[in-house]
Design a protein around this nucleic acid. Structure first.
Lengths: 127, 127
DNA sequence: TTGTATTTACGAAAGGCTTCGTATATGTTT
DNA sequence: AAACATATACGAAGCCTTTCGTAAATACAA
């Protein structure tokens, strides 16, 4: 599984959110957050294409790029790596850190609680 | 807050675990996990010293290095960054990902549930 | 004291990421 | 057709990280 850099993640996020886009569209989105030249965005996307992170159609004058990796898979693989390097493999340590640090909304907390319940049940079932 | 690289994190982990150490000691620990030259470890630690990630005493022939940043603070700052880049700031999404993916032990799950209860109470108190 | 081992310091190479300038191709407008 | 706008391709610079070789200092042993 390929590990996207931070810049590449920015681009992937736009594609995941908006669907297939041209370089111009991506560049416009990125420009909202920070200063970045058009050819810089272009180059990034060309490299991502070589890496297999993006696909593209070259029919039109402007190429249309599509994310070749899913948000789910990418996040999973990044989380794996992060847990390993930063928490020495202890996922629960990470969870505790996050919950202790960030304010989650009531809805989010409920979601998490429900998820925990499900895990509980599954664990019990297995026995 | 400085962001340690993955290699630097490895070194910090050893120092957090074992306390102040010489280059030799660090190198021995790192060698357990992967091939790495002695001078490579030395150079890394010298750079970390310049960055302010480590302090050192030069009294003895062998310098003794100490972590200049705490594990807690470092993890907090790394988590912040990670949530931002990978989950666009949604901490709960990260938690859901981790819980859905990694098997946590019963004790860990209980810990997390307790933490959630505390958060619940605090949230209620505030109202 | 001479040689051996260990340590630090330093420089430099290799590779990756980000950035942009320039060249070239391709449409569009007048 | 000529001028203009826009797109892609490409190369290269600048920076950072990792890696290691080599030199110089320091301690110890024969």
């Amino acid at each position: 599984m390929v590990k996207p850099t931070d810049s590449e993640l920015e681009i992937l996020h736009v594609l995941w959110l908006n669907g297939p886009s041209t370089v111009r569209q991506i560049h416009e989105e990125l420009s909202r957050n920070r200063d970045i030249g058009y050819t810089t965005a272009l180059k990034l996307m060309q490299i991502m294409y070589e890496k297999g992170l993006l696909t593209r159609t070259e029919d039109a004058r402007s190429h249309v790029y599509t994310a070749a990796v899913s948000e789910e898979d990418t996040q999973r693989s990044l989380v794996d790596r992060f847990v390993e390097t930063t928490f020495r493999g202890s996922a629960s340590k990470l969870v505790m850190q996050v919950l202790g640090q960030h304010k989650a909304s009531r809805e989010e907390l409920d979601e998490i609680k429900n998820l925990l319940k499900q895990i509980d049940q599954n664990t019990t079932d297995e026995k």
